[in-house]
């Protein structure tokens, strides 16, 4: 464990990612303290540029504070990104492992089931799901998880299949270890690193899907999100760049941070790298 932390902290990219992610989290946590008022409230003159009329990052077309929106938006984006990815990971890795380890008919059935989801354009599916069930945080998370798990399941299956054929897995079976123990102690730890990296990318894409849904007006109407802000500001982007620029930067920084952390985590979890 100590080695893992040490390697992680030894990577400049890991530290950078962690710092950036910490900034996002800090924004999410401190939003209600720094901006106690609702981000939907019209608190200034519409179309104020950053610094104008006492607005740090300016205001949008209705005079809402961009800075407040970016801070409050962090809560929604991070929550949706992380929770929906965890849900997708849970479903995807579970199905992938079962398919890869069991093989045969079980494998065929699971792969076909996964393919059904893969043949439907994922964003259309997410839109349909949210539109039918009415937009709320819960339905958005379920919709994103629903479209994010198939690639994770395919990846987990391929990884598990290749690791299962390695001799140390056969040796573990010969040691009399139960299938569950072989799976969790030997196969999964050796299969997990690409899954972790892809998982971190999934957090990023979940944030982007949420932004896209909000952009289309399918966000949770009770919560300000980065995607909604970009969507609302897009029509006036040539007159008022700041309305979409700052939430865009926020998405960019968060997504990059998560990718950097995922990469460093991958190195840290590999004893070959962390112990050398």
């Amino acid at each position: 464990m100590k080695d893992v932390v040490k390697t992680f902290l030894g990577r400049p990219t890991g530290i950078a990612g962690l710092l950036l992610l910490a900034i996002s989290c800090l924004m999410a946590v401190s939003a209600p303290i720094l901006y106690p008022a609702s981000p939907w409230e019209m608190s200034g003159i519409p179309f104020s540029a950053p610094g104008e009329n006492g607005m740090l990052l300016g205001t949008d077309t209705l005079g809402r504070d961009i800075a407040s929106g970016v801070m409050h938006g962090a809560r929604v984006s991070l929550l949706i990104g992380i929770v929906s990815t965890l849900a997708a990971l849970f479903v995807g890795v579970l199905l992938g492992c079962v398919a890869g380890y069991a093989g045969g008919t079980v494998d065929t059935v699971i792969v076909r089931f996964t393919e059904i989801f893969q043949t439907i354009p994922s964003f259309v599916l997410a839109i349909l799901f949210v539109a039918i069930l009415s937009p709320s945080l819960g339905t958005i998370i379920v919709a994103i998880a629903l479209v994010s798990w198939p690639p994770l399941a395919r990846l987990a299956r391929a990884q598990v299949m290749s690791v299962t054929q390695r001799e140390f897995v056969q040796a573990a079976r010969c040691q009399g270890q139960s299938p569950l123990s072989v799976m969790f102690r030997h196969v999964l730890p050796n299969a997990i690193s690409p899954i972790i990296v892809t998982g971190s990318l999934t957090v990023a894409s979940a944030i982007l899907i949420e932004a896209a849904l909000s952009f289309m007006g399918l966000g949770d109407p009770n919560h300000m999100s980065w995607g909604y802000m970009i969507g609302a500001g897009r029509t006036v982007i040539r007159q008022a760049w700041w309305m979409s620029f700052f939430p865009g930067i926020a998405i960019l920084v968060t997504v990059v941070a998560i990718n950097l952390v995922g990469e460093a985590l991958n190195d840290a979890l590999n004893p070959r790298i962390s112990r050398s």
């Binding site: 390695r166 001799e167 140390f168 056969q170 040796a171 010969c174 030997h186 730890p189 050796n190 004893p271």
Partner: peptide, 15 residues
């Protein structure tokens, strides 16, 4: 019990 051919592949690298 069995001892395999390839000593590099037959030990779990993460254990």
């Amino acid at each position: 019990q069995i001892v395999f051919q390839d000593p590099y592949a037959s030990l779990d690298p993460r254990l």
